[in-house]
């Protein structure tokens, strides 16, 4: 499931933000991918819709890396 979440996030970043796929790995920070806090908000909104979950604002504020976003989404999915 984590791999699926990571792959979905990666696909979204590639298609919506134009980042090259080979630059995205699990430990990439949003900042080094050229994404800011608003990009992270949009990404999480898409993921919430795909997986039908709600991510609390307090969790979202801590998503600085792809890994943190995957773990946060994984936690919401398994609840």
């Amino acid at each position: 499931m984590s791999e699926e979440v990571f792959n979905r996030i990666k696909d979204l970043i590639v298609t919506k933000k134009g980042v090259e796929a080979e630059k995205i790995n699990i430990d990439s920070s949003f900042e080094e991918l050229g994404m800011d806090s608003l990009d992270a908000v949009e990404l999480v909104a898409d993921m919430e819709e795909i997986f039908n979950v709600n991510i609390p604002n307090t969790d979202l504020q801590n998503f600085k890396t792809i890994r943190q976003a995957v773990e946060g989404l994984q936690k919401a999915i398994s609840q």
């Binding site: 908000v41 909104a45 609390p56 604002n57 307090t58 979202l60």
Partner: peptide, 20 residues
């Protein structure tokens, strides 16, 4: 709601546990 800056509880300016 969508822009994620509104707190769930209340407004706590300058407090370390502020949420928005």
């Amino acid at each position: 709601e969508a822009i994620r800056v509104v707190a769930n509880d209340t407004c706590r300016p300058f407090s370390k546990n502020r949420q928005g």
